[in-house]
């Protein structure tokens, strides 16, 4: 994916020069190993900062919400699906954006990699299929495939579903993945076991709301957790309030979540809150045959009624 950089710069430069867009949103190199920072360029010169590697996991669609400029945006498969969802939900106009598609081979999981080494990681160098991790007293080369973010390892839409430009030819999609083993494991638990499982999962939560804010779907002017008249959910560290926040946040993503992994990636205490959204994703697929963000012209199942919608739950 490293070879994309020149092409990204070239396309961005052209779009800015020709005045097709006012800004291009991409990534610049971060100040820590395995981190890049979302960044914008408003002039052809500014695109020089752009980079692309396996640390571009933040969902850039988050930066499109309600913007009024003409924008060029880099989009992996998942970002592109969220852009489609944004278009469906009127958060951005199709003709306002130029989508620069990036075929994605998956982003690496920096938490997982950090946990593999006792010391601090000083440098991470990557090539096409491997990454080399260096630190004081250690150096190891790992197969990128083994340290992908879980959502990337299970991804079946690596190529952008919608694009105006492409930085490279489309890559082969994964077909032999079982996306829902973890969800099925939880489904198999008894109600009490589920409750205990989620309690344990959410116990470290500090309510920083990074998961909510990293999510391109969470754009409400005022989130229900921030409503004060009436106040729907307590603000303390009570586990019931914490769980309420997580459950409701997940519900709001039903039929919209593309499993881009931004929520899990952003969590400072390593909670995998994707187990909630994945359950809803699985239900949408099984009940309505729906995958979010594939086509801007199809209304999502939760805002349409069809006579054939499943209704077995009504006695």
């Amino acid at each position: 994916m490293l070879s994309y950089i020149d092409k990204i710069k070239e396309i961005s430069k052209r779009l800015l020069k020709e005045g097709q867009v006012d800004m291009v949103i991409g990534f610049r190199k971060g100040t820590l190993p395995m981190m890049n920072e979302p960044h914008f360029a408003r002039s052809p010169e500014a695109v020089e900062h752009f980079v692309w590697d396996s640390n571009c996991g933040i969902n850039l669609c988050n930066y499109l919400t309600s913007r009024t400029e003409k924008i060029g945006i880099l989009a992996k498969g998942c970002d592109s699906r969220n852009i489609v969802t944004h278009i469906i939900e009127n958060k951005i106009k199709r003709d306002q954006i130029v989508i620069i598609g990036v075929p994605c081979k998956g982003m690496i999981d920096r938490r997982k990699i950090s946990a593999m080494f006792a010391g601090e990681i000083g440098e991470v160098i990557e090539d096409d299929n491997t990454i080399t991790v260096k630190g004081k007293g250690f150096e190891k080369t790992i197969d990128k495939k083994d340290v992908l973010q879980q959502n990337c390892a299970l991804c079946i839409h690596r190529n952008p579903v919608i694009h105006d430009e492409m930085v490279a030819d489309a890559i082969e999609e994964q077909t032999d993945v079982d996306r829902y083993t973890d969800v099925r494991e939880i489904e198999a638990l008894s109600p009490q076991e589920k409750a205990t499982y989620f309690e344990k999962l959410l116990e470290p939560c500090i309510r920083c709301y990074a998961c909510r804010n990293a999510c391109p779907l969470c754009y409400c002017p005022t989130c229900f957790t921030d409503e004060s008249r009436p106040q729907w959910v307590g603000k303390g560290q009570d586990l019931t309030d914490v769980s309420t926040f997580h459950f409701l946040r997940a519900y709001h993503c039903a039929g919209r979540c593309t499993d881009c992994g931004a929520c899990e990636r952003s969590c400072p205490v390593g909670i995998n809150m994707r187990v909630f959204t994945k359950k809803l994703e699985k239900d949408c697929l099984e009940l309505f045959g729906w995958e979010a963000g594939l086509d801007p012209d199809v209304r999502p199942p939760l805002d349409t009624y069809k006579p054939g919608d499943p209704d077995d739950f009504i006695k």
């Binding site: 979302p38 500090i206 309510r207 920083c208 709301y209 990074a210 804010n213 303390g236 400072p268």
Partner: peptide, 25 residues
Amino acid sequence: SFSCINCGTCTYVCPTCWCFDIQDE
């Protein structure tokens, strides 16, 4: 500020941030 998602991580992990809110339950 462009890339900031306005979560509270920086302030909550910071040893010197002291702001609080008062709530009645």
